[in-house]
């Protein structure tokens, strides 16, 4: 799998993401600075990693969504490309209009840095084929603005079309509507989620429960 990770000023999870992709595919992803205006040819996956791009100025992900590279990411998604956004990357995807809704301040107003449990609602997306539907797995959350919100009509569409890919199991700490932790685009190829599966890809450091996301997408694009 040919993957590229885009970094912005304030991004801080790109190296963990690179390790996760390498663990799943054996190949090093390309690192791209946000000032680039084109994606390299032959790309299978674009990843928007976590962090605090632009210091979360204005709204989380709002400035990054206007970066030069994002026009190319929009085109890539429009042509059917696979795009994964984690944490700040999920916020960017909503700000860029590639996924519906928005991520609000956590209902508790607290920054949440802890493990959470996610339930897999869809095992037939490019990112989740190596999970069983209904399976739960542990991931790490580290965000101040992960409270997923959308209007009633959008929520009905997301639920009706089965585009809620992950939900928080047990306590819904950030207050997300319908305990939504991750959603995908209509074609299933753009996925955004708040928790960090890239934290859980190494048996020596936190276990490997997040690895199936990366092995799933790698196998999907190879097929």
């Amino acid at each position: 799998m040919n993957a590229a990770i885009i970094t912005f000023p304030g991004t801080n999870r790109e190296r963990d993401m690179a390790l996760a992709l390498r663990a799943a595919t054996g190949r090093k992803p390309t690192m791209l600075w946000h000032r680039e205006t084109a994606l390299p040819p032959g790309l299978d996956l674009v990843v928007l990693p976590g962090g605090f791009s632009y210091g979360d100025y204005l709204r989380c992900g709002a400035m990054a969504a206007q970066s030069p590279i994002m026009a190319a990411v929009r085109d890539f998604a429009a042509r059917g490309g696979h795009v994964l956004g984690v944490c700040n990357g999920f916020q960017m995807l909503t700000e860029a209009g590639l996924l519906p809704g928005a991520l609000l301040r956590n209902a508790s107003l607290r920054f949440l840095a802890m493990d959470c449990v996610m339930r897999v609602e869809r095992a037939d997306t490019p990112y989740t084929a190596h999970f069983q539907r209904g399976a739960t797995f542990r991931a790490t959350m580290a965000h101040g603005d992960g409270n997923y919100f959308c209007d009633a009509e959008t929520l009905a569409t997301l639920e009706g079309e089965g585009r809620v890919v992950f939900r928080y199991e047990g306590e819904n700490r950030n207050g997300s509507i319908n305990a939504i932790a991750g959603i995908c685009s209509e074609n299933g190829r753009v996925l955004g989620l708040m928790p960090h599966p890239e934290n859980c890809v190494d048996p020596l450091v936190g276990g490997t429960e997040g690895l199936p996301i990366f092995t799933s997408i790698a196998e999907h694009v190879a097929a």
């Binding site: 204005l58 709204r59 709002a62 206007q66 909503t94 700000e95 519906p100 809704g101 928005a102 609000l104 919100f149 959308c150 209007d151």
Partner: peptide
């Protein structure tokens, strides 16, 4: 386009 997110 930028200053407000009209979703919220």
């Amino acid at each position: 386009k930028l200053l407000a997110n009209t979703v919220i």
